[in-house]
Nucleic acid binder design. Sequence first.
DNA 1: AAAACTGTATTAAACGAATTAATACAGTTG
DNA 2: CAACTGTATTAATTCGTTTAATACAGTTTT
Lengths: 120, 120
Amino acid sequence: MIHIDFRDPRPIYEQVYDALRNLIVSGVLAPGEKLPSVRELASTLAINPNTIQRAYRELESDGYLCSVPGKGSFASGSDAARSAHRRELLDRFCALAEELRAAGVSDENMIRAIRGGERT
Amino acid sequence: MIHIDFRDPRPIYEQVYDALRNLIVSGVLAPGEKLPSVRELASTLAINPNTIQRAYRELESDGYLCSVPGKGSFASGSDAARSAHRRELLDRFCALAEELRAAGVSDENMIRAIRGGERT
DNA sequence: AAAACTGTATTAAACGAATTAATACAGTTG
DNA sequence: CAACTGTATTAATTCGTTTAATACAGTTTT
């Protein structure tokens, strides 16, 4: 379900965050669907529960899931999740476009890069 | 000339790297112009020479400057530097566009984001 | 009601990357 | 020769991440 790369310099909690967010926004985890418990996922991935807890905490504070003490953690509505994710990506996208413009890249060349995936 | 933010979670050597690269690709540091020595810049910024050394080493390995033992470090030709920088930014840009496409954002909406800087 | 689950919080230890510190060596310049 | 330059190395420190070991309160199950 989730794969952790221990050679990846990025923190584990961040890898877990990204993986779960992707499952949520893609709808693999349906809105309202229950996620594995903190301890269960920690056991499955062979990492510490505190690390999972941190990923869950940040996923909740970013609106991707909802945790209820005693009950569990549940995927939030995929509409809201998708919006949050798009917003996040678009912000980074605009910032990068700004940098590219400062580097002398024209809008036309950016558009070409988007359309073609080319790296000329 | 350069400002370091100690509250920034990013490593200092990376902040120095970015700042110097920007000065080089923007032409503020002309091609061939001598940069402050490792020890001098370290003293100016009140950080350790080893940290500056690391920034310089990576700037050289990425083609933004050229270090000569005994003489100093010199900004590389801004043409090559600009190209390297644009390549780097464009790679990240294309990767982000890919993610946005996967998130269901159309090319048209990406283009709109570039043109307007809008965040709708 | 008891047992087994859930999220959450806390404290301490271990680990690794970043940073500092203190040198040292070789080449260049004045 | 003296003062600069880049470069290399080793050890100590600092800090964020991760682990570990608990504990508490609420929910579900038996």
